[in-house]
Amino acid sequence: MKKSDKLLAKLNQSLAPEKEAPTPTVSSPSPKRNPRKPRPKKPAAPPKTTRRKPAATAPAPALSPIPEPPPAASPPDRAAQARDLVNQHLGLSLGAGMIPMPIVDVVAISGIQLKLITELSRLYDVPFTRHRAQAILLSLFAGVGSFSLATGVFGSLLKTLPGAGSLLGAATLPVTATALTYAVGHVFIEHFETGGTLLDFDTTTAKRKFEGLVAEGREKWQNR
């Protein structure tokens, strides 16, 4: 057995499946070895090969029931779930937009949008490659007309893209970050809803829709 496997097996064993509630005491130094009854040596504990075991296999003796994971969405619900995902990520990008440093802004914004695309891909069961998603994001952002982004810009990324708009104050940044996430989310929802994948994403048509969605997003969050 590899040393590391041995270590993990020992760790697993040391965590008994059921522990009695600790009796409240004044703090005392814990004895070197566990004073409770010695654990019986389990014959060949089944190796835990599955990576993600469903949680809470130990019976919960009391109170809080662990909520079941939601059932897989049927197609009519999926679009609604997808919109929920976008809304959740809008909150994230609004927060990230508060970062004053341009380079950090860019990474944070794209990270959130990448995460959004990852989760939408998962929801629609579409194969996801980070490389492809990043390429699509870059081309979408590059394509947005300088007018849409002129009043709110995200620093270094735009500087490196051809035809980028001018760099303006950070005051309008949070709105743009949210508008971009909104636009990314809805462009992808539409693409995935019509059966598209990351590989057949047509950026030329998408860019036009994207620009409209960014403007729409900015309208919605201008006063937030």
Partner: peptide, 15 residues
């Protein structure tokens, strides 16, 4: 190594 082990530990710990 310990990070790798983390996946299985939640069930063991009981939450």
């Amino acid at each position: 190594v310990l990070a790798r082990g983390v996946d299985n530990l939640a069930a063991r710990i009981g939450l």
